[in-house]
Design a protein around this nucleic acid. Structure first.
Lengths: 191, 191
DNA sequence: GTCTATATGTCGATAGAC
DNA sequence: GTCTATCGACATATAGAC
């Protein structure tokens, strides 16, 4: 109850505030001054917990990865039928995107702000997208629709492209308009 | 030859330099000081030609829209067969993306840096993506594969999602790996 | 561990000479 | 139309008291 209660902990408050600001505003436009002001801590306290702004961003991405995947898995695992589990990827988008004010994927947004593909932050983006593609492949593999392994990998890849495209379009148009069509296209592809 | 020759014109040099830096580095991370230094002009000269950094960004997006569409149309119009014209959308990606160092779509990258959907810059992004979707719809309509208008609109939407997804994936992985699969998927969808 | 005060630099934008 | 010099604000990061 003392050190376990992190809700009032400075480190946690800083990370929560930074996560909100980085996601809603972007990385470079969000200054350390704004983070510490809205977190209600002093500047030196921030630099006691985090060595730099970039380290704070890395912590943000780590936590974001955990949170986002738990949201996704929670939606998928509500379904028992393997086909419905796969299709629920898009149902997840229909819930998540409006709920996040159509700000889109935190990792793609950050990648736009870090052009160097070798940067530590860009490698985290790759890790996140690798995990997403692995997850989609697992869902596709459980369908057992095709005897050829090669086809299921390609099918999973197409579904991933539709998934990313749906996120992007919804971000630009602030709408979930195309997601239903994407889900029905996947339904036809696997039947 | 005097005022027509814009290659040495300050305004043109500024816009060319800013276009390169905004695209390669991002908007917020690129300072006016860097733009004028690399363009070889004085700061006051910049503010004589452009009222603000944001106006410079708007000029960048206008020119980028013209340039990018002419590249796309040039690739498409090399083909006479209507089906090949549609599929050449993805051939275009295979040429353009490696050539741009896998920096992806200038408009999506800018949108990540401007969260407010009502901003002037975000409206230009919508204009650009509207034009792209209209173009894809035109290519699909010429196929005359389906009697139902509704299906061609949905098909064009799916192709657009695959197109956006392919751009995004190539940006993250610095590769054109999935584009061939996307093109073949479209080939099957329209047959 | 948290505070105030500060260091050092760069940001976007302007003034005024030429 | 282009220049140098400069403005006030804010950037990231530190020093030193408590």
């Amino acid at each position: 109850m003392t050190s376990q209660n992190l809700s009032g902990d400075s480190s946690t408050k800083i990370l929560q505030t930074a996560s909100r600001l980085f996601y809603e505003q972007g990385y470079h436009v969000t200054g350390i001054n704004q983070v510490i002001a809205e977190a209600g801590v002093a500047k030196a306290s921030f630099y006691h917990h985090f060595s730099s702004k970039e380290e704070l961003c890395i912590a943000y991405l780590h936590k974001r990865h955990e949170d986002w995947f738990s949201w996704l898995q929670q939606e998928v695992e509500q379904n028992e039928n393997d086909q419905e589990r796969l299709l629920s990827l898009f149902t997840f988008l229909e819930r998540w995107l409006p709920n996040s004010n159509f700000r889109g994927c935190a990792f793609l947004n950050i990648a736009s702000e870090f052009p160097s593909p070798d940067s530590k932050i860009r490698l985290l983006v790759v890790d996140h997208k690798n995990a997403l593609q692995d997850y989609i492949r697992q869902l596709v593999d459980r369908l057992n629709i095709s005897p050829k392994k090669k086809n299921t990998a390609m099918l999973a890849d197409l579904i991933y492209l539709l998934f990313e495209g749906a996120i992007t379009k919804s971000q630009i148009y602030q709408s979930t308009g195309s997601i239903e069509a994407a889900r029905e296209a996947v339904r036809q592809l696997i039947n």
